[in-house]
Design a protein around this nucleic acid. Structure first.
Lengths: 345, 345
DNA sequence: GCACGGATCTGAAACGTGTCAACCTCGGAT
DNA sequence: ATCCGAGGTTGACACGTTTCAGATCCGTGC
């Protein structure tokens, strides 16, 4: 039943090597022969066996992408960027979802190692898995995505999240807000910690201390936990309740927005909201969300490019850091009655 | 550099077959030997070569999933369902995004065939690719997802979309609406056509004809095109403007919601909205969206289970059809205060 | 006639694994 | 002393491809 290159050779009346040449160096084969072989391939419905190619070549034509949460549109956008580049290079992408769980992440890394992927793109869970280090030692390129490499020994593509947090906080403070909340505080993820740090830095600079900043620390960053945080905020006495909320990602922000609305708290008049990532749903929310935009697709693209480059000679590890941009939309358009609707892009 | 089973054997002082036994039938190997081998594996950092295993076994430990739009959370939820089952069976999932483009779909199917995947789960573009048929002929199981198989010759896991359309329309009509719009009309996708047909059937039954149903036919089903449709609706003269909109999926519905709000049309008071799929963002919208719920994750699960079963002896093809459920939320909670008894014709 | 080179084709070797028949060892039964 | 069988272990072979050194053929220039 399975038809191999040998069957094709037999049918076309040529040797096995010639069939291989037709497939890989067609111009080295005389036209008549080539056509006879192609005919045989068509007749028999021959399909190359990628495993055998890989075995011979020593490496596969695939690349692994491990993300924290496949349900977060941020990561699907990154994935598309990766796909763009990978496809052009003739590579397939194995997309793995670690769910922010080290055990799952580790299992997927093993799997990718066994597949002999050309490289791994990963947004790691808080602690860098030992598997990552051993992959690199074994010679598999690894590029960190949305996370800065700790040393110069590896590539990474990240975003300046301290700046992002700062942008969000500065914007709100300039708009006249005097009490802020940050939702997403204590997650072990460095990205989140940096956003937090940026907010804190801005608040400190302006106000001298952090007393007017309330921090909420949901365990995971989802719409649901955003809702829970908002419920807490709404329950605070009016005199202490923050007038603006900065969320560590847009999922949280959407949850906050929904819960606020449900409680009759008008956004942005009574409470402004700023999200993070600027996923498509942020602009599509019924109160379009101000958000810190990261070049999502570009992030994936550049990461994939670095990965490809890493296999080349003379590669030097690179730590790319993108600058985020604040996109102001309705959810923070309040106070400071100024006429200018500033939209940064 | 690359360390093979042979290197391990050498180091452990055993034969190559013994190492293989340690890996695949550990209980057939004497404890001392086993430990020596495991030690060697650890020392050398040996990792199985999946390609070689596959070559030997004739089939890989992977399964392909081809979706129409990776950016649509509906499909990522389906993917999670697939992953649940695949992981338990020790299979990896290669996730491919056809972008609703036959050319991309076809390219990915070729790739999956070359990978010798154990099977393919696919939500096909409008026309069934000839590649699908040849895959099946070659013995690769194929299961259609969110699309009914045309004949009994193959497995499929779908949802009764005619019923879904009907549920949405009935609900709105019962609530007292007398002019409806359906957004998503002419896409070639059978799923969409069925939803449309369901709406039409309900409208016909109640009103005798379809004059009070306006149909919009965006080319793709995204938030952006939803917005465009809403802009058109808002532009209609008040006397003709529908008081409720049924959308072919939730992305459209979110776009419609946003544009309505932007134009100051209150939802649901002035215009009710019903979406389709019930993605998480539907409930999270600032005006929570009434939507036709499909068992998204379960859809993926069952599809994967059917696929696994298909490799077993005595498999009979099965066409599973789930019944959708209308989840009523705020976006359609209006009217019906009228005491007028509206009877069907 | 002959050497030469280019175009074309051939077939063996190798990639790393799983399988399986055969082999070894050794204690116990005959 | 011989045989038996079970528990361990071995090593050759096959999987399908790519590669590469060599073979073959043919026209050309001397």
């Amino acid at each position: 039943m399975p038809v191999s290159i040998r069957d094709v050779a037999l049918r076309a009346g040529v040797s096995l090597g010639t069939v291989s040449n037709v497939l890989n160096r067609p111009n080295q084969v005389a036209e008549g022969t080539r056509e006879r072989v192609l005919q045989a391939i068509g007749d028999l419905g021959f399909v190359r066996n990628e495993s055998a190619r890989q075995l011979r070549a020593g490496t596969s034509r695939t690349l692994g992408l491990v993300v924290l949460d496949i349900a977060n549109p941020f990561f699907t956008d990154v994935a598309r960027g990766v796909e763009d580049v990978a496809n052009d290079a003739g590579l397939a992408v194995i997309l793995c979802n670690s769910d922010d769980r080290p055990a799952k992440e580790s299992a997927y890394l093993d799997l990718l190692a066994e597949q002999r992927v050309q490289g791994v793109l990963i947004t790691p869970t808080a602690d860098l898995s030992p598997n990552l280090e051993s992959m690199r030692r074994r010679g598999t390129p690894v590029v960190l995505v949305d996370r800065r490499a700790s040393g110069p020994g590896q590539c990474s593509v990240a975003v300046d999240d301290v700046l992002g947090g700062r942008l969000a906080a500065d914007h709100l403070i300039e708009r006249g807000h005097r009490r802020l909340a940050f939702v997403g505080g204590s997650s072990g993820l460095p990205q989140i910690q940096e956003r937090h740090a940026g907010v804190v830095a801005a608040v400190r600079e302006r106000w001298g201390d952090e007393e007017a900043l309330t921090v909420f620390a949901p365990s995971v960053l989802t719409v649901e936990t955003g809702r829970q945080a908002a419920a807490q905020i709404v329950g605070m006495p009016a005199a202490q309740r923050p007038t603006a909320v900065i969320c560590a990602n847009d999922l949280l922000a959407l949850g906050v927005l929904q819960e606020m609305t449900r409680h009759g708290v008008r956004v942005p008049e009574e409470c402004a909201i700023v999200g993070y990532d600027d996923i498509d749903f942020a602009a599509a929310a019924a109160v379009p969300l101000t958000s810190v935009r990261k070049p999502r697709r570009e992030l994936g693209r550049r990461a994939a490019e670095l990965l490809l480059d890493e296999s080349a000679e003379g590669h030097v590890h690179e730590q790319i850091v993108f600058e985020p941009v604040l996109v102001v939309r309705e959810s923070s358009m309040t106070r400071r009655t100024s006429s200018r609707a500033d939209r940064t892009a």
